[in-house]
């Protein structure tokens, strides 16, 4: 993942993009904590809503891997009442850590 490439793709200069990325990381970190809590408490509607929000923000930022993983979590939650999304949430956490390291 290349910041220059991503910012060009979004039509933003690199500093603007990084500013937005910081904000994305902050909100996504909080959202991931809430997502884990919602899943462990089996509040699946709430979990789906959080995954939906993460997916939308990633789409805005052009973060394709993050978007696809969040979309899969949302789809899994809708597929069954006891969806096992632990692995996927772990994957999102890793992607978020990569982004954090990158900026």
């Amino acid at each position: 993942m290349n910041l220059k490439h991503l910012s060009d793709k979004m039509g933003l200069d690199e500093n603007e993009y990084i500013d937005l990325l910081y904000l994305f990381i902050d909100t996504a970190t909080a959202d991931l904590v809430n997502l884990k809590t919602a899943v462990s408490n089996e509040y699946m509607n709430k979990a789906a809503g959080i995954a939906h929000s993460l997916k939308g923000a990633a789409l805005n930022m052009g973060l394709t891997d993050f978007f696809e993983t969040a979309a899969t979590i949302e789809a899994e939650i809708h597929r069954g009442p006891r969806a096992d999304v632990g692995q996927l949430i772990h994957r999102l956490t890793e992607l978020l850590a990569d982004l954090t390291r990158m900026v």
């Binding site: 979004m10 039509g11 933003l12 937005l20 789409l59 930022m61 052009g62």
Partner: peptide, 8 residues
């Protein structure tokens, strides 16, 4: 809503 480049 979509990618920022399109939204802009």
């Amino acid at each position: 809503k979509g990618p920022f480049d399109k939204m802009s």
